[in-house]
Design a protein around this nucleic acid. Structure first.
Length: 121
DNA sequence: CATATGACGACAA
DNA sequence: ATTGTCGCCATAT
């Protein structure tokens, strides 16, 4: 069986996979949608320890402030910036304009992923 | 069991 | 805008 933590991480990754191209979401936002209120740090942890061969659009996850979370200058940081710009997400002064690019899921999208039936992933 | 840490976030000064 | 605190919560030691 899966541990509660594994399920949470699965939901986190699944949620991130739903971020549409050209949009971004904050760690806290992902946590909330994934059913983990105040679990922003968990999202960070989950991303940091992504499994091999993942297909998660991790670059669409930024801080609530719009800044890229990774250390400035790090390889990952540059990579993320590049990936975002490839999706037409502008980065001014090292930050994304959240007002403009923040992902705003529709009711339908949220209804897809009922938090109750995730026991068998 | 006690601390420390971190790809966070909200808020006060 | 910048800096410091504190709350959160899974992991690591």
């Amino acid at each position: 069986m899966k541990t509660a933590t594994e399920k949470r991480n699965t939901r986190i990754r699944a949620t991130i996979c739903d971020i549409p191209k050209g949009s971004v979401a904050s760690y806290g936002q992902i946590a909330e949608i994934a059913g983990i209120p105040r679990g922003a740090r968990q999202v960070g942890y989950a991303l940091r320890h992504l499994p091999e061969g993942h297909k998660v659009p991790w670059h669409r996850v930024v801080r609530a402030s719009g800044e890229i979370a990774m250390r400035t200058g790090s390889v990952g940081h540059r990579e993320q910036k590049k990936l975002l710009q490839n999706e037409d997400v502008a980065i001014l002064n090292g930050r994304v304009d959240m007002k403009k690019y923040r992902w705003q899921p529709d009711l339908d999208e949220l209804l897809w992923k009922p938090s109750a039936a995730w026991d068998d992933e």
